[in-house]
Design a protein around this nucleic acid. Structure first.
Lengths: 196, 196
DNA sequence: ATATTATGTGAATACATGATCACATGAGGC
DNA sequence: GCCTCATGTGATCATGTATTCACATAATAT
């Protein structure tokens, strides 16, 4: 039999294993069997620490939300100039996506939004505040004269997030043959020309 | 027993039914049973017209590709001005998404890109040519002085498609509480300010 | 009219997946 | 050393899904 560890540690291991499964084979492949194999334990043991797949999904969403989406708010609250903040948000978001493909896959997966409404609600709230955060930074940029005065903060924020999201998507489905960081630099350079 | 129809007609009906299932309940719910119910026929009859789920996926991809992505190429080949073409491509794409949510769901679904590599390859090719088509229109717009000379056609095209894709996504997951057409008008008005 | 063929279906098969259970075993308190 | 309990597991069950098959019936040719 395996070494025994506390539930707290096992939970983290299981969530991490789940994220790896999603990153490697997609949310569709997120079966108890796959998680158990990735975590190196039996299927039954998953149920020892989680009541079922629902709780596992919630934990996964919390983990992603806390470690990832909170990031933008922190940057926005910093003391730098708006344009700098925007750039930092953009590239840190891209970096997260590049390092962990399971994140965007999970966040925008059907299994979450059609199969786990409570998890979906929590994620949509986070996405909404993400949009507001970026809008606020853009509005500040306009006020301070760094950005063109005629642009609309909210729509520009949505355009920027769409650009990020589309990049993640293209990477996920393999359209992006070159490196995602190279691609994102080109996109950002062009976006700068559009907004300022 | 039901009325008998030719395979050609039944195939169309089945593809349409499948698209409705995807639009209503997602690719995850695209089971033979669900398609059969939506089409009003028995499961076994699906196999009378398709060799299996793989062929059905291919047909679905072809249908979407032809009726949707071909659209942009037609518009681009027309005789209007680049900016007009861009606007038409944008709004017809949005219209398709609004009328049939199954389209973006299917195109960017994991089930397709991780479970049906041949279908995925055909779709990635189409997405690639879509990007090129839009890039071409934007490049023409720059040449003719309708758009800012400093923008990069390819990256601007990706930004525009990202904007569309993100709108589709927000509609799919329910973040978009207001009408998608209203939202898209606001986004386009802002995008015009960005590119010209 | 009859034969032939294509189209339609309920029932059955094979397999994957989520979940449970009885039982095994390691860790810490005594 | 022994007890207790949380942790770990193979076996098992229930359900859902893709697919097949024998059989039924409408359309069509002869």
């Amino acid at each position: 039999m395996r070494e025994k560890k506390s539930t707290r540690i096992r939970k983290e291991e299981i969530v991490q294993a789940a994220l790896e499964v999603v990153g490697g084979k997609g949310v569709r492949a997120l079966t108890i069997a796959a998680i158990a194999e990735s975590a190196g334990m039996s299927e039954a043991n998953i149920y020892r620490h989680f009541s079922g797949k629902d709780e596992l999904y919630s934990s996964l969403a919390d983990f992603i939300g806390n470690s990832v989406m909170g990031n933008a708010a922190t940057i926005a609250a910093g003391g730098r100039k708006p344009l700098e903040k925007l750039e930092t948000i953009f590239f840190s978001h891209i970096k997260i996506i590049a390092e962990n493909p399971g994140v965007p896959r999970f966040i925008f997966s059907e299994d979450v939004f059609l199969g786990h409404p409570d998890v979906a609600k929590s994620l949509t709230t986070r996405i909404g505040s993400y949009v507001e955060t970026v809008s606020g930074v853009i509005a500040a940029g306009v006020r301070e004269g760094e950005l063109k005065p005629e642009i609309s903060p909210r729509e520009t924020a949505l355009t920027m997030l769409g650009m990020i999201q589309f990049t993640a998507l293209r990477q996920t489905i393999g359209v992006l043959n070159c490196d995602i960081t190279v691609e994102s630099k080109k996109l950002w350079a062009n976006f700068m020309k559009l907004i300022s």
